[in-house]
């Protein structure tokens, strides 16, 4: 049970959720996405209740769960537009079936899907799991670009991730 959670995120803002295993980071992210209903409290978007109906709320959310949602039978390019592959370094694998990707490459593909979504709020559950240092930097660059375009990010991570003007919420 999560209690006493209170934060505000503005355009271009980023909130990092930190806490031990089982602290409720994923649960909070799922509640913010509208996947898990709130037992109490309010989730507001521009002063209005955010989750009146899930499809409308979902239209502003790009979701990256702790699973990659990558289909082994589809090629890399069938998951995201090809233009989205370059920022995560997967452009050479566009025609490759996703079953041949490593765990880190699948995570990068999932990140590319988020980046290509064009949605305002990114909700990311352990986005850097399985990524090498270069891929973490690519991810940080994507986050910076999204925030500079007015987007918002809420992410949970165990990996040290330093981005400017980042709020941290300890659970």
């Amino acid at each position: 049970m999560l209690q006493g959670i209170d934060f505000t995120l503005s355009e271009g803002g980023m909130l990092l959720l930190r806490g031990r295993n089982g602290a409720g980071k994923s649960t909070l992210l799922r509640a913010l996405a509208g996947l898990t209903p709130l037992a109490a409290g309010e989730l507001l978007w521009a002063e209005e209740p955010a989750v009146r109906d899930l499809p409308s709320h979902a239209a502003r959310i790009a979701w990256l769960g702790h699973l990659d949602a990558v289909k082994p039978a589809l090629t890399v390019a069938e998951h995201v537009p090809e233009a989205a592959l370059k920022p995560v370094g997967l452009e050479k694998f566009a025609a490759l079936p996703a079953r041949f990707l490593s765990a880190g490459q699948k995570r990068r593909l999932a990140i590319a899907r988020v980046a290509a979504s064009g949605r305002k709020l990114w909700l990311l559950d352990e986005p850097t799991t399985g990524l090498d240092a270069a891929s973490v930097q690519r991810f940080a660059d994507l986050c910076t670009a999204h925030r500079e375009a007015g987007g918002m990010i809420i992410a949970s991570t165990h990996t040290p991730l330093e981005l400017k003007d980042m709020q941290v919420l300890e659970l």
Partner: peptide
């Protein structure tokens, strides 16, 4: 359900 796609489907903008 097992690979996480169900969450994406529910957040795709389509109703369940």
């Amino acid at each position: 359900f097992e690979d996480g796609t169900l969450d994406l489907l529910l957040l795709s903008g389509l109703s369940a």
